[in-house]
Nucleic acid binder design. Structure first.
Lengths: 130, 130
DNA sequence: TCTTGCTCCTGTAGTCACTACAGGAATTAT
DNA sequence: ATAATTCCTGTAGTGACTACAGGAGCAAGA
């Protein structure tokens, strides 16, 4: 059984526009077409879309999702490569967290310093200081 | 004393290209020009650029930095509005941290499950599951 | 059968905050 | 005087979408 793009979107959690975008970018293979030219998706194609969705939720960029899909296609032992890609992404995610946490700390201090009602805002003053 | 754009870039930490971009986008006012048409920056202009840099490091989008610069220009009591903008941004930063932390947790589990050498990668299997 | 309304198609442009040229003019250093 | 550096404008590219415009196909009810 094959499904139209709207159904594939609902089942995978990827919007129609984004599915078409992924196809254009070669993240997923080109969808099969009906007689009238509409895209049709079988079980495997929908599974692939759901995989891409999950990878995006884990922060993988599309370029690495392409690699991951290729590795799944390979029959050979691929776990090493997958682990490297995963560990790499984990490191990037942790770096982003660290950046955001220092932002958060600085912002907290500034917002707290910024008491209501004053004329010269201490937060702005701080940000404008030499 | 006024400085060329290269000096302003060094003193503010904003690259030349980005300074011109900020001007195009109206984040900072249009720079004064020398006789030959080159941009020149006085102390205030460089202070403004440094302010923008710091705000970017705190995660403020350019649209809000524009507002913040406007509020600094106003003589009236602006602390309330600044605090609202700051608190808003703090909330967004905290949401991003929360998202990244759940990514991190899920990724950690997956990467650990992905032992070296196996043929069927458990991480890929997980991501492909129904 | 006709019509209404939904889904789908392609192609293009916009988002955000830059970054990277290309091709030329002016300034500074040797 | 010449060479090296800096600066100018304008345009296009990045990542991962999102939002149309303008048109075609399809399914269900009257």
């Amino acid at each position: 059984m094959t499904q139209a793009i709207g159904v594939a979107a609902r089942l995978s959690g990827v919007t129609i526009e984004t599915i078409r975008y992924y196809e254009r970018e070669g993240v997923v293979p080109k969808a099969a077409r009906s007689v009238s030219g509409r895209r049709v998706y079988d079980k495997d194609a929908i599974t692939r879309l759901r995989f891409v969705k999950r990878c995006r939720e884990l922060g993988f960029p599309l370029s690495e999702i392409r690699s991951l899909l290729d590795l799944y296609g390979d029959a050979s032992g691929n776990c090493d490569e997958v682990r490297i890609i995963g560990a790499n992404n984990l490191k990037l995610v942790q770096e982003k967290i660290a950046d955001l946490r220092s932002m958060e700390a600085a912002l907290k201090t500034l917002v707290v310093s910024c008491k209501s009602g004053g004329k010269d805002c201490p937060m702005l003053k701080d940000l404008f200081a030499d």
